[in-house]
């Protein structure tokens, strides 16, 4: 039953009239690092939010580790959102305690150790921390768990290349080998070498789901090069068929 860690069948999601996902079928096995690639607005964040239970699908079913999305799956999913979710009054250690309370797979000691290696003082108030430091704390929260599924929404967007390298290394060295990492990004060249598989998402649909090695073997070029071709903006020749 649980050969696949992620299973999506005919998943659709619309916000009001606006469709975000238009029929996603997806299966991802355990122990993989998977890149969810696509331009902005292609539905990457929506898919991740559906998997971590922040959204409900309009149609279709999703399962993580064979279970429908709910408290049981939330207990095994470690989610890095694309924004800060901290309450001002907390310190990093308060958050660590909160995570230790709620997630059985969270290691407080590991979190403290990660802070030390990242140069973050865990007893500082979050309010006084810089944006970059807060992002590090959030990464620590996510990676100090040994979850079955890590959902990382744009973990390397908006940081400089050195920090990017650092984040990828943190993910590589801290993720539990049994877990699967699904990370969304539009900066492919930076993540390509850490990925097992890639999923190309375009206009709410999966265009391609393939291993990186297979793409390089078959296409004789990098995933980045293939991505650029697939998502090349076509030239616009006026409006055919009336209103836009």
């Amino acid at each position: 039953m649980n050969d696949y860690l992620i299973q999506c069948r005919g998943v659709r999601k619309s916000y009001g009239r606006k469709p975000a996902l238009t029929g996603v079928d997806l299966e991802v096995g355990p122990g993989r690092i998977v890149g969810l690639l696509g331009p902005n607005g292609s539905g990457k964040t929506t898919l991740i939010k559906l998997l971590c239970g922040l959204l409900r699908p309009t149609a279709g079913t999703l399962a993580v580790d064979g279970e429908r999305i709910g408290p049981a799956t939330k207990a095994v999913v470690s989610y890095l959102p694309d924004r800060m979710y901290f309450a001002d009054w907390m310190r990093a250690v308060d958050l660590f305690q909160l995570f230790r309370d709620f997630y059985a797979d969270f290691s407080y000691e590991k979190a403290i150790a990660m802070c030390r290696s990242l140069g973050v003082e865990p007893k500082d108030r979050l309010k006084t921390m810089s944006k970059g430091t807060k992002e590090k704390v959030q990464l620590v929260l996510v990676m100090a768990r040994s979850a079955k599924l890590y959902l990382l929404d744009e973990p390397i967007a908006g940081v400089d290349p050195a920090a990017r390298d650092f984040i990828l290394r943190t993910i590589l060295t801290n993720y539990d080998g049994e877990g699967t990492v699904l990370l969304s990004t539009h900066l492919i060249s930076d993540v390509e070498k850490v990925l097992d598989e890639v999923i190309f998402l375009k206009e709410g649909r999966i265009m391609l789901h393939e291993t990186v090695d297979a793409i390089r073997e078959q296409e004789g070029r990098s995933v980045d090069a293939l991505f650029r071709e697939v998502f090349q903006a076509g030239p616009v020749f006026g409006m055919e068929g009336g209103m836009s």
Partner: peptide, 11 residues
Amino acid sequence: DEGYLMHTLPV
């Protein structure tokens, strides 16, 4: 924003 934390807790 804090909802991102609260709604992904296993509750």
